[in-house]
Amino acid sequence: MNEIKHNELHCSQQKTGVKHLAIWTLAWVLSTAFLRFGAEYIWDYQLAYSAIALMTHLAIGIMMILVNVKHLANLDELQRKVTMDALGITLGVGLIAGIAYEQLEDIKLITFEPEINHLIMLMAVTYIISIVFGNRKYQ
């Protein structure tokens, strides 16, 4: 009975962890937008405001990383393996594709400047696909 209660507590901790991760990720995305568009439309690139917004953005980013680490620690070992595998694949794809993409303009295969947003989108899609396949593998 104690073990069942323990597991319920564990599940509840996991749900809280996911909720906190979602909140901090959303806050980070919003702070990214605020930093980019605030400078342009609100404080007209004033150095002090841009510095404050940047520091806030970085602080929120660090919080997001810490919450993610805590979330990983709360997963059971299979869930952690699936997540770590997905993170490893995403890192590899991000590094390989990012460097290749960056060189496309240098070797004149594309005419536009490579944008970091494209790489982030690729990494997000890679992570989601890796998680889905990882979970299906162990079903």
Partner: peptide, 15 residues
């Protein structure tokens, strides 16, 4: 079994 081991049902099933 998953409850007793404090793991997810997916993990118990995979093991």
């Amino acid at each position: 079994l998953a409850n007793a081991l404090a793991v997810s049902r997916q993990t118990a099933n995979a093991i």
